[in-house]
Design a binder for these strands. Sequence first.
DNA 1: GAGGGCCTGAAG
DNA 2: CTTCAGGCCCTC
Length: 312
Amino acid sequence: MPELPEVETIRRALEAVRGERILSVDVRSPAMIRGMDPDEFRLAVEGERIEEVSRRGKYLLFGLGSASTLVCHLMMAGRLLLQAPGAGYPPHTHVVLALSGGEELVYQDLRHFGGFRLIPPGGRLPPGLAAMGPEPFDPSLTPVRFFRMLHSRRGKVKGILLDQRFVAGLGNIYVDESLFAARIHPETPTDRIGREDAERLLSSIRSVLQRAISHRGTTFGTYRDVNGRPGENAPALSVFRREGKPCPRCETPIVKLRVVGRGTHICPTCQPKPRRRRTSRRPSSSLTDPKTRPKRISSACGRTARSRARST
DNA sequence: GAGGGCCTGAAG
DNA sequence: CTTCAGGCCCTC
């Protein structure tokens, strides 16, 4: 399941075809061309020059000579392979672009979830791309801005980090790894994350992604680079898919939970569950209304706090 | 803002 | 056999 580091690895390899022309387009699975008739797609793309290969979040973007953009998303199982003609296509090959440099760019997708989309000049971006949050490495994403962004959203921090409108490119693997590195429990509500935690989380996200890029991505299942090689980042992971194995920091066995409907891996020692907040967000009337006023809260807390202070 | 649909191999 | 994972789009 390609996330930012895997897509970036592919993008860097595809720099090699920048400047080449797309000589022909073979659409073997029409459904892999989104939002456009496949024949129309083929006619529009054939003859175009690849001016630029860029990435936004998990999207790969080919800037074409006519100022249109060829957008590719690999979703979970998509692969882009660069291979010599006549090498034979792997199973589930859906689109083949023959390039002027002599290679073929092959789109393969076991699950048919990903695909291509052609955005004409000035055309509308797919919603996910249009509403995409900042890139994690964007210098304008300062710790202060990140803290404010977190506090402008409600919910569990893991759910927010997975939302591409918040920050671009994170998926299940790197969210779990970043939260572990920052020692934050995935169920922590965003409004319980202080400035220091937010700053640590941002730098954790960056170092986790940077390390994964330097290892050419993480391969558990289907991810491969354009040469069909798996990534080498899996041994560098601390918690993801390491249920029952010792935490690299404290040796506590890693635990698997479900958070926002997703399999989630944590170290229960390094990432303690946040305590429930004591101050509830009731309307102020509830504090004065005897029917709804919480009983014994102030006195109980006061007494335990004082006795604890005395005994220590 | 929530939830279904897409698709197939792996796991139960 | 059934269930599930996975990210995004689309409809409500």
